[in-house]
Simulated scan of single mutants.
Amino acid sequence: MAGVAAELINCKNVDRSYREGVFRSYGADDLAKIEEYICFVSGLSPNTFMDRGNIGEVYDDLFEKYWGETVNIINDNSQAIMGLRDYVVSRLNSDENVNRFFTEELLSHVKGILSSKNRQL
């Protein structure tokens, strides 16, 4: 869910049909996994156990619950996410041969963003 939520980071009040369209186009593989995990998670509690009579309702409730949590995490980290996005895009624009980024490089850049944010607070 984080990938789609990050895609929509600058959008205000995304309606359900638009969000579903993004999932079906950019995140189809992710959506298949999400559906699988939601079905699995539903069986962990008697309050969310899916059966033939409630599958749609339980699925929708769990999807919305996890979507809300994901959006909150993305919003709480939006400055770091957008800073990292801008860094990657700037590197791609400056050197067409750059197609790999190393974890240490990206983490270093995020740490710089976060320390800058903390100094501003």
Rank of each mutant, 00 (worst) to 15 (best):
A6Q: 07
N47M: 13
G53L: 13
W67N: 04
V71H: 00
I113M: 05
V98D: 04
V71T: 04
M1T: 07
C11E: 15
E64D: 12
S108D: 14
D95G: 06
G3E: 11
Y59I: 08
A28H: 03
D86H: 02
K111E: 15
R19A: 12
Y26F: 11
D51R: 03
L106A: 05
Y66F: 15
E69L: 14
I73E: 10
G43S: 15
V71Y: 03
G53I: 05
E64R: 03
R16W: 03
F49W: 11
L92I: 15
V89D: 12
Q79D: 13
T70P: 03
G3R: 06
D86P: 03
S108H: 06
E104H: 10
D51E: 12
I73S: 10
G56I: 06
F63Q: 01
V22C: 11
G27E: 06
Q79A: 13
F102H: 08
I81C: 07
Y66S: 06
T48R: 00
S108A: 14
I113P: 00
E104Q: 09
E36Q: 09
T48S: 15
H109R: 04
M1N: 05
R16N: 09
S94L: 12
N75W: 02
N118D: 08
K12F: 13
A80C: 10
H109Y: 12
T103D: 09
D95Y: 01
A5R: 00
S116Q: 06
E35Q: 13
E105M: 08
K65N: 12
D29T: 09
I55H: 10
D95K: 01
R85D: 12
H109I: 12
E104Y: 10
V98C: 14
N72L: 14
C11N: 11
P46E: 10
D95I: 04
R19S: 08
K12W: 10
V89A: 14
E57P: 00
A80V: 02
K65D: 15
L84V: 01
R119Y: 05
D29C: 12
K111M: 11
W67I: 07
L114F: 04
K65Y: 14
Y26Q: 10
V71N: 01
N54Y: 03
S108W: 05
F23E: 05
G43V: 08
I9Y: 05
G56P: 03
A6C: 12
I34E: 12
G112V: 00
E69C: 11
D30F: 06
V58N: 06
D61F: 03
S94F: 09
G43F: 10
N54S: 08
I74L: 12
R16H: 06
V88K: 00
N77Q: 03
Y59F: 15
E7K: 01
L106K: 02
Y59K: 03
N72A: 13
L106Q: 02
S25E: 11
D29L: 13
R19N: 01
I73C: 11
V110N: 01
A6S: 09
L62E: 08
W67C: 07
I113S: 01
V89Q: 13
A5P: 02
I9Q: 05
S94E: 15
G112P: 01
F49G: 08
V58A: 14
R16C: 08
I73Q: 07
N10P: 05
R19Y: 11
Y26S: 12
G112W: 02
E96L: 14
R100A: 13
